[in-house]
Computed example of a mutant assay.
Amino acid sequence: MTEQTIYLLKALFLGIIEGITEFIPVSSTAHLLILGSWIDFSSGDAKVFEVVIQFGSILAVVWIFRARLIQLIMGTLRGDRTEMMFTRNLLIAFLPAAVIGALTIQYVKALFHHQIVFVFTLILGGLLMLWVERKPQYAKNTSEANQGETATSQKATAFALEEITWKQALVVGFAQCVAMVPGTSRSGATIIGGMLAGIQRKTATEFSFFLAMPTMLAATVYDLYRNGASLSADQGTAIIVGFVAAFFSALFLVKAVLRFVSSRTYRPFAWYRIALGAVLFVWLMT
């Protein structure tokens, strides 16, 4: 195989990893950068590849929830109070990361080159998840699972999401700002932030999915605007390959994640984060 073919196969592999890890609280960025380093995948100093292919995963959510999104858009345009409140909450949760991210993106990207940062964020994030899951309201399975609701029920999704208050949405928004630190996990930070604000686990997960849409779209457009001209032809092709792979792998994972959180806690992911952080620390030290 040629060097270019091997390079694109590496991009394909990382795209699959992105789709698998984007919607579980284990940090897709950490996996992309760590595994990319281990397989000697060069994405350039700007790390555009890692940012842009995440939007491929987000498009999978757009496709899965397309009917709900159309309902949200049309309801907001018609002035439906419920849909307008949901849209308001998404905007409130989106704005903190949009403003702070635009101001600090260069400093945040500098952290991508220091893998020791991932050790601390992975382990601390795992410990925080364990602490939150020990709270009485999350210690048992969610009531949705006991009532036999399915994760794909659009009616159940709409009913749960419309109960979120603007204050809870704001907490989730600031939690998303914390997720700009590599290894934190955007989905993990927003889900745990929502749970700390009093939102049930499944609803917090669904809100995190919807919030990812404007957030990752903005990040993708901004990053391509800032760094697109400096990309080589090989890097541009790798982004396309990784983007498509992320879309299709995420397409099969999203519903599984919702089914999982309907009846189980995030403890397995917390322990996984701690174990991965420990392995990474040993690898860096040796």
Rank of each mutant, 00 (worst) to 15 (best):
L128Q: 04
F120N: 00
Q154R: 12
W38M: 15
A250C: 10
Y222F: 15
R134L: 06
G148D: 00
V241W: 03
F55R: 08
L95R: 02
G126H: 09
Y266R: 03
Q115M: 14
N89P: 07
S42Y: 14
I92T: 06
I240K: 07
F86Y: 13
A233Y: 07
L33I: 13
T87F: 14
M195Y: 00
T165S: 05
I17D: 02
T76R: 07
L14S: 07
K10V: 04
H114W: 10
I34Q: 08
M180T: 07
G236T: 13
L8S: 08
G193H: 09
Q71G: 10
V99H: 07
S153F: 11
T203V: 02
N227G: 03
F118P: 00
A246C: 11
P182W: 00
S262W: 05
H31T: 06
R226G: 01
S249N: 06
I192L: 11
Y138V: 00
Q137Y: 00
A233M: 12
R273E: 02
M216F: 03
L128D: 06
A250N: 07
P136L: 07
I92E: 04
R66G: 09
I92K: 04
T203Q: 01
S43P: 03
G242H: 11
I100C: 06
V119K: 03
L90G: 03
S42C: 03
V282S: 09
I105P: 00
A30R: 09
E22C: 09
F112K: 04
M285C: 10
V221W: 11
S232K: 05
F118A: 10
E22R: 11
M74W: 10
M1N: 10
E22T: 11
L211R: 01
E18H: 09
M180D: 06
A179P: 01
A246W: 11
I239W: 04
Y222V: 10
S153E: 11
G148W: 02
A60Q: 10
L170C: 10
S43L: 02
W63I: 13
G198A: 01
S187H: 09
F243P: 12
D223N: 14
I100Y: 05
Q4E: 12
I240M: 14
A175H: 01
A67D: 15
A139W: 04
Y225S: 13
A275G: 09
T157W: 12
Q154N: 13
M74G: 03
S57L: 05
L253C: 14
F55N: 14
Q106W: 04
E206K: 08
V171K: 00
I199V: 12
F248D: 09
K167L: 11
T220C: 03
A175W: 03
V117N: 08
V172T: 06
A110H: 12
L122P: 12
P268D: 08
A246Y: 11
H31I: 05
A204N: 01
M195E: 01
F118V: 08
